Amino acid sequence: MDERCFLIVRPADAARGCSPEPALHPECLPYAAAHCPMLNGTATHYRRSPLLATHPAGRPCTDPSCPCPSRSPDGGHAARSGSPADRYEAWLIHTRNYRPVFGPDRSDMPSGVSLDVHVLRRRVLRTAQLTAEQERLTGLVRGLLGGNL
């Protein structure tokens, strides 16, 4: 990486102080933002069922000592399953501030990237998908304000 990179951050990540996504090179962010369904807004809800646990080679992985990333659902997936998509931001930081965060159960594998950093620039990639009730209430407020919301 060069001296700057982008972190993809949701409000829940910011509250936790850690993003599960690795950094993106500044030149790669436009591609990711254009082609990732969650970032470009074409996906309106999180998947109800996670991807099956597979090895990067495309076959099921049952070896507990294999270093391949886990594809099994985590607590975060279960909490988001079927929920409307969150707001996503891209935070530009200096790479010297890029610090992996390690979970208590796996001190040898990072669980994310620390968000306790100086942010040079924030860019909204997508706003949160509103629920039907939130859309209805927004419409009511819009009507009261003469459409200026």
Rank of each mutant, 00 (worst) to 15 (best):
A15K: 14
A15F: 05
R16A: 14
R16G: 04
G17E: 01
C18P: 00
P22F: 14
P22K: 14
P22Q: 14
A23V: 03
L24V: 08
L24F: 05
H25C: 07
H25P: 01
H25Y: 07
P26D: 04
E27T: 14
E27R: 13
C28M: 14
C28F: 02
L29S: 05
P30S: 10
P30N: 10
A32V: 13
A32Q: 12
A33C: 03
A34H: 03
A34T: 07
C36I: 08
C36W: 04
P37S: 07
M38S: 12
G41P: 01
G41F: 03
G41Q: 06
G41I: 02
T42G: 08
A43R: 11
A43K: 13
T44G: 09
T44L: 14
T44M: 04
T44Y: 00
T44Q: 13
H45V: 04
H45D: 03
H45W: 00
Y46M: 05
Y46F: 13
R48H: 06
R48L: 15
S49A: 14
S49T: 14
L51R: 08
A53C: 11
A53D: 15
A53F: 00
T54E: 13
T54F: 09
H55W: 05
H55K: 09
P56K: 07
P56S: 06
P56W: 03
A57Y: 00
A57S: 15
C61W: 04
T62H: 11
T62M: 06
D63I: 10
P64E: 10
P64F: 08
P67W: 10
P67E: 11
P67T: 12
C68I: 10
C68S: 11
P69S: 03
S70C: 12
S70H: 07
R71C: 10
R71A: 09
S72I: 00
P73A: 10
D74T: 08
G75R: 08
G75E: 11
G76M: 01
G76Q: 04
H77D: 10
R80F: 06
S81C: 09
G82S: 05
A85M: 15
A85V: 08
A85G: 11
A85K: 03
A85D: 08
D86S: 12
D86W: 11
D86N: 08
D86G: 02
R87H: 15
R87V: 03
R87C: 09
Y88V: 01
Y88H: 15
Y88T: 02
E89M: 02
A90F: 01
L92A: 07
H94P: 00
R96T: 08
N97D: 15
N97L: 00
R99C: 04
R99H: 11
P100V: 04
P100W: 06
P100H: 11
V101M: 13
V101E: 15
V101H: 03
F102C: 11
F102Y: 15
G103E: 10
P104I: 03
P104R: 13
D105Y: 00
R106V: 06
R106C: 08
R106E: 07
S107G: 07
D108I: 02
